[in-house]
Design a protein around this nucleic acid. Structure first.
Lengths: 111, 111
DNA sequence: TTATTAGTTTACAAAACTATAAACAATATT
DNA sequence: AATATTGTTTATAGTTTTGTAAACTAATAA
């Protein structure tokens, strides 16, 4: 018999897993991941690209870094961000395919 | 010039994309996707497997179906659920790898 | 028809998330 | 040293998400 009592399952992994997935659960953070999918960028460039208020952008970047999705590098006054691994962009891309497939299915229902 | 005014970007896709990713942003829904990754299951079996209150389970299943992640099939008194596409399980698996990689990195920092 | 079973919907309070504004800190420039 | 620039942190109000309980609906069995 395992350490876990019968029928009492350890859900820690599911909680950790969902915590990292929460990083994808916001349109601004999806946009940031999208922009950074193939290059590093500075905070200022991200601000320009997203049009988001700097305090808000900083908060979202903090979330992504804290979950290990982005890596931050500081150089003088500037901060640079990049994906910690291409896997994140891949997972993101697959979820976008699911979205597109669903939209296509809905359109078929209409026609 | 496009229909969008200069520098005013259309973020609709990012919003739709994040909306579907929100399905992954909960431990119970991650568990459901995990359980259904390779088989169809009835509501009752899912209840047994997850140990979640039936009203809550029904709510989470409703979220997953409404986002096109699960397909529901009814047969008499019973309801059966399965993934609409294997892609969701794939994306989920990749995010789990990101999680595991990050945990390993943290452990290296300690040792 | 009445009761039972299986699952859904609704109401609601607690917790988590979000965007804005303002204060702050760190580095670089004059 | 004083100022400007870049980015972070904090406070806060509004919104969304969540789990529980209770009421409800639909299909089957007695």
């Amino acid at each position: 018999m395992s350490k876990q009592a019968n029928k009492v399952k350890d859900k820690t992994l599911y909680t950790l897993h969902s915590n990292i997935c929460k990083a994808l659960a916001n349109p601004i953070r999806i946009e940031i991941i999208d922009i950074l999918s193939n290059k590093e960028m500075s905070f200022g460039e991200l601000q320009e690209a997203t049009g988001v208020l700097k305090s808000n952008l900083s908060q979202h970047l903090t979330v992504l870094v804290s979950k290990g999705i982005l890596i931050q590098r500081k150089e003088g006054l500037n901060a640079y961000y990049k994906l910690s691994t291409i896997k994140v962009a891949t997972a993101c891309q697959i979820m976008r395919e699911v979205l597109i497939d669903n939209i296509k299915k809905q359109q078929k229902l209409i026609n």
